[in-house]
C-alpha cells in the first residue's frame, strides 16, 4: 500500500522533472532515510523545481530560503524582537521552522550563516537567547549548491558536506526530454496543481519500516570491502568515515524499501553508493570533469570490488 503510493509519487514527479528518474528516486530515498539532500548543479537545471515539487507532493509545509552573501544567521533561524506591548523580547521563528526547507544556493552565503543552517539540521532544534525551539518532524532540508568554480561562492567545508545524506546532480536533460520541456507546460503551474499523495503519518510509518529492514553479515562484508577500498586508495585524501558507512547503509535500506524488499542486497548499495559517497570523497579533478563523461573513480570502485559470494 505504502509502496504503491511512493511509486505513484515517483511517477508524478517524473512528469515534472523529465528524464531524471534515478535522481528522483534518490531524492525520495533521502527523505525516507531521514537524511538531508544536497542538489549540486549549475543554475537553471531544475533544482528548485524538484525541491518544490517534492515538498508539495508529500504534503509537507514548505519554506524557501534564498541564500545570499549578506544573509545573517538570524535570517534563517529567526530572531528576538522587542515587543512593546509586554515590554519583553519575543522570538520570531525564522523560515527554518518548517517541514521542508529549500536552502537555495547555500554556498553563496557566508560560512557563519551556512553553519547556522547546518547546526539546526544536525540537532533538529534551534537555540536562541537561551531558549531551545524544536524543529518540526519530519524535518527535511533540500539544499542546492552551484558548482564550485562559480564566482562568489563559499564552498561548503568537507565536514559540513558530510551532513547531507545524499548529493545528486541533475545534469543536462537529454535531447528528447529537453524538447518536451521546451514544448510542454510551465512546471510552476504543474507544481501549483499538485496534490499531496501521502500523509505525514504514512511518511513516518515508512521511515520506521525502513529502519527495520534486514541487513545480513554478507552485506556488511561487502559494504566494509567498499569502504576499505576507499581508504586504501590514493585517489582521495582520505577514505570514508564510519558516519559515511552508516549513511550508505541507511540509504540502501531505503532503496531496498522502495524495491519492496525486506532485506538489503548488494545492488541496493550499488544503487545509492555514488550519491551517498561522492561528495564525501572529494578530489580536485571532480568539478573540472563536470558533465564531460570523465571516468568517475567512485563509480569505478563498484566495478573493482567484488561482491563476497
Amino acid at each position: 500500500m505504502l509502496n504503491e503510493k511512493l511509486n505513484e509519487i515517483l511517477d508524478t514527479l517524473s512528469n515534472i522533472i523529465l528524464g531524471k528518474p534515478e535522481q528522483l528516486k534518490l531524492a525520495l530515498v533521502c527523505l525516507l532515510a531521514q537524511g538531508h539532500l544536497l542538489i549540486e548543479d549549475l543554475p537553471g537545471m531544475g533544482k528548485t523545481t524538484l525541491a518544490h515539487a517534492l515538498a508539495k507532493i508529500l504534503g509537507l509545509e514548505f519554506q524557501r530560503i534564498q541564500f545570499t552573501s549578506d544573509i545573517l544567521p538570524g535570517d534563517i533561524t529567526g530572531s528576538s524582537i522587542y515587543k512593546r506591548s509586554n515590554e519583553s523580547f519575543e522570538f520570531h521563528k525564522g523560515p527554518i521552522f518548517t517541514q521542508v526547507v529549500l536552502a537555495d544556493e547555500i554556498n553563496r552565503a557566508s560560512p557563519k550563516s551556512q553553519s547556522a543552517l547546518l547546526e539546526a539540521m544536525e540537532e533538529g532544534q534551534v537555540t536562541a537567547d537561551g531558549n531551545t525551539y524544536e524543529l518540526p518532524n519530519p524535518f527535511f532540508v533540500i539544499a542546492t549548491q552551484n558548482s564550485f568554480h562559480q564566482i562568489g561562492t563559499y564552498p561548503l567545508p568537507e565536514s559540513q558536506l558530510d551532513r547531507f545524506l545524499i548529493r545528486i546532480t541533475l545534469g543536462f536533460p537529454e535531447r528528447e526530454f529537453e524538447r518536451k520541456l521546451l514544448s510542454g507546460n510551465d512546471s510552476r503551474k504543474q507544481i501549483a496543481q499538485l496534490q499531496a499523495k501521502i500523509s505525514t503519518d504514512e511518511l513516518k510509518t515508512a521511515q520506521r519500516n525502513i529502519e527495520e529492514i534486514t541487513v545480513s553479515e554478507a552485506l556488511y562484508d561487502y559494504l566494509q570491502d567498499l569502504i576499505d577500498a576507499t581508504r586504501e586508495s590514493n585517489q582521495w585524501s582520505h577514505g570514508l568515515s564510519p558516519r559515511a558507512g552508516l549513511s550508505v547503509l541507511k540509504a540502501s535500506k531505503a532503496w531496498a524499501f522502495l524495491q519492496e524488499r525486506e532485506f538489503v542486497i548488494p545492488e541496493d548499495i550499488q544503487a545509492v553508493w555514488c550519491a551517498v559517497t561522492e561528495h564525501r570523497l572529494l578530489n580536485e579533478s571532480m568539478d573540472k570533469s563536470y558533465g564531460k563523461g570523465f571516468s568517475n573513480p567512485v563509480k569505478n570502485l563498484l566495478q573493482q570490488v567484488a561482491i563476497p559470494r
Binding site: 534486514t214 545480513s216 554478507a218 552485506l219 525486506e262 532485506f263 538489503v264
Partner: peptide, 9 residues
C-alpha cells in the same frame, strides 16, 4: 534469500 534476508545462513 538465504544470503541476505537473515543475519547469517
Amino acid at each position: 534469500s538465504i544470503r541476505y534476508s537473515q543475519n547469517n545462513c
